[in-house]
């Protein structure tokens, strides 16, 4: 038999194991008396910090226009191919806008690459983690669900400016 080398040789008490078992059990028993950390979800809701990566949303400027210029970088960088963008021409100065912007929330893995790559700060991760749908079609979020007014996203935008 190969001699097993340990960092520290076990003492006799440790080797008979029973004492160690009791030590472990005392530890877990102490834990039982500690305060609980569970949140009662539907009544109490988790308010995520600014660094939280919830569902990606599109920033809507105060004049009601989306920031997005449909460059398709988010779509290209998305490792799960969740984002599909169709650009079109607009009379606005930005020339180009997303006629269609769809995120398949079944594909999305909340990695935040889209946000990181976006040259316009137009797509950001929100704090929304409540995503429920009952069929595949509902899981594809279009512009109607994705556009969020910029005022509601200040937290995240400031976070990005500070740490990105």
């Amino acid at each position: 038999m190969v001699e097993k080398k340990r960092k520290k040789n076990l003492s006799f008490l440790e080797r008979i194991y029973v004492v160690e078992i009791f030590k472990g059990m005392i530890l877990t028993f102490k834990n039982m008396l500690r305060p609980k950390v569970t949140m009662q979800y539907p009544e109490v809701k988790f308010e995520p910090p600014a660094s939280y990566r919830g569902r990606p949303v599109l920033v809507q400027e105060r004049n009601g226009v989306e920031r997005c210029v449909a460059c398709g970088l988010c779509s290209r960088v998305c490792p799960a191919l969740a984002i599909e963008v169709q650009a079109a021409e607009t009379e606005l100065e930005k020339e180009r806008y997303p006629q269609k912007f769809e995120i398949n929330m079944l594909r999305c893995i909340f990695c935040g690459f889209c946000e990181e790559v976006c040259p316009e700060e137009a797509i950001v991760m929100s704090k929304d983690y409540e995503l429920v749908f009952t069929n595949r079609e509902d899981a594809i979020y279009g512009k109607d669900k994705l556009l969020i007014p910029v005022d509601k996203l200040q937290d995240r935008l400031e976070f990005l400016r500070k740490f990105k």
């Binding site: 877990t28 834990n31 039982m32 500690r34 305060p35 609980k36 950390v37 569970t38 009662q40």
Partner: peptide
């Protein structure tokens, strides 16, 4: 319940 208590859950 016991497993929850040991793990600081409810």
């Amino acid at each position: 319940k016991v497993s929850a208590w040991i793990q600081n859950r409810v």
